[in-house]
Amino acid sequence: MEALFAVTLGILTTSGVYLLLRGRTFSVILGLTLLSHAVNIFLFSMGRLQQGSPALIGFTDHPGDPLPQALVLTAIVIGFAMTAFTVVLALKAAVELRSDHVDGEDPNEDRL
């Protein structure tokens, strides 16, 4: 199961990074969201993938690791705020610069 998880995580990250490198703001936002999903489950998995053992005292004998969960919980909320911020930034840029390219100028792809 761990192997499959790692592969899925890798694919998620790859897609996220690939989109991050695109030239249009909306793709970048998509990429950021994907990447934050990947990071969240990566962090979460550091507490190991366990079933039926929520971090609740008295519910099970072997509660899961609560620390990554607490970290990821706030990460999700802040990730949302940052997504919202990036979205507004993208809108502002599109209006002010009359282009939704990340560099603010229409397709002028830089050299490799």
Partner: peptide, 24 residues
Amino acid sequence: AGGVGSLVGLLAFAVLTRPFSSIS
């Protein structure tokens, strides 16, 4: 992207298959 993805995936795999100790 593939490089970053493989690295993240491999890292996760390496950690998950190793013994675990936590401050929790």
